[in-house]
Amino acid sequence: MAAPESGDGNNGAARMVTLISSDNTRFEVEAAAASLSQTLQLTILDGGGGGGDGIPLPNVDSATLSKVLEYCIKHAPAAANGGAPNATAVDRAELERFDNEFVNIDQSVLYSLIMAAHNLEIEGLQSLVAKKVADMIKGKSPMEIRRTLGFPDPTPEEQAEMNAHMLEYGWAYE
């Protein structure tokens, strides 16, 4: 996906913008895809990111940015439709299948995506990665959640508070 720099992004086809990752890799994508990011949208609307300029993203490395853009490219057409009336059930099912496949990744990659989606404010991706974490902790006890998320074991005092909370809201653990 890392495209070579191209100077002619406005040849009548879709407008292209260049994004530059923290490790200085340049990515050329359609403006419509990059605009799924609320953070980038204004810059792109102002005409930024075209030609040789590029928009630097100092918080996102190339591996993560490549993954983020894969999401944006897939979701851009549906977002352009307002996601609504023209989206058939087949399209929706296809996107759902893509999404499920997309977050089938290592926890460290997932965490990088969470941070990138947060920094770039890509609402759909934010929901998707949060849902993945929710699935990871679904049905687990608080102790198992701590281990899944890499927390140290609780102190006896914390353990007592955990037990008290579980006793008070017993129904949430059924």
Binding site: Y111, I114, M115, A117, H118, Q126, S127, V129, A130, K131, V133, A134, I137, K138, P142, I145, R146, L149, F151, P154, E158, M162, H165, M166, Y169, A172, Y173
Partner: peptide
């Protein structure tokens, strides 16, 4: 993950019952 991010990116988006279970975590 940074705690603020966990709270506002993940816990914030959880359905109520799952959120409630998470409250025992820490």
């Amino acid at each position: 993950l940074p705690e603020e991010l966990v709270v506002w990116e993940i816990l914030f988006r959880l359905p109520a019952k799952v959120l409630l279970r998470c409250l025992a975590v820490c």
